[in-house]
């Protein structure tokens, strides 16, 4: 099964929509509840990252019997220092974003902890693509 969702940068009113849709789909497919919980955490963080940091992005989800492959490709500023970005507590989020309780520097570590495979491809000034795999 292949699913796609567009995400607009800056639109926090819709943040989490794609995560919620994919959660529903996984429930309908009777995927194990603990696996769904891991997908939800990783995917929501990645979705919010597009809203908080990028101009726009697309979430591609491929689901088969073995697991779910998520690709989140955004047009945005890119990540200058991926090692720093992976550190818990490091964030480049704006003050507005932090006041909402986002931007605590927990997103990428949360994704990493919940994914079986996780990679970041980024080009400064162009954008970032996250690949997240979670096995069933």
């Amino acid at each position: 099964m292949h699913l796609e969702y567009n995400v607009e940068g800056g639109d926090f009113t819709r943040a989490g929509y794609a995560s919620s849709q994919i959660k529903k789909t996984l429930k309908q497919l009777n995927v194990d509840a603990t696996v769904i919980k891991r997908v939800v955490v990783a995917l929501y963080e990645a979705e919010v990252n597009i809203v908080a940091h990028a101009y726009r992005g697309v979430i591609y989800a491929d689901i088969n019997g073995a697991g779910i492959q998520l690709r989140l490709a955004d047009e945005g500023p890119g990540i200058a220092d991926v090692d720093m970005a992976m550190k818990r507590g490091f964030s480049t989020a704006s003050r507005e974003v932090r006041e909402m309780g986002f931007g605590a520097g927990m997103g990428l570590p949360n994704i990493s902890e919940n994914a079986d495979n996780f990679s970041i491809d980024t080009i400064v000034g162009k954008g970032t693509t996250l690949n997240i795999e979670i096995k069933f």
Binding site: F12, Y44, V48, M100, G101, M106, E113
Partner: peptide, 26 residues
């Protein structure tokens, strides 16, 4: 911190917070 709750809260818990915007419901 929304990412803290996202990462570490558990199903069935009551969440205590001062955040009031829509994302808490997500």
């Amino acid at each position: 911190l929304l990412s803290d709750v996202m990462g570490y809260s558990k199903e069935g818990q009551i969440w205590i917070t001062l955040q009031t915007h829509k994302n808490i419901m997500a």
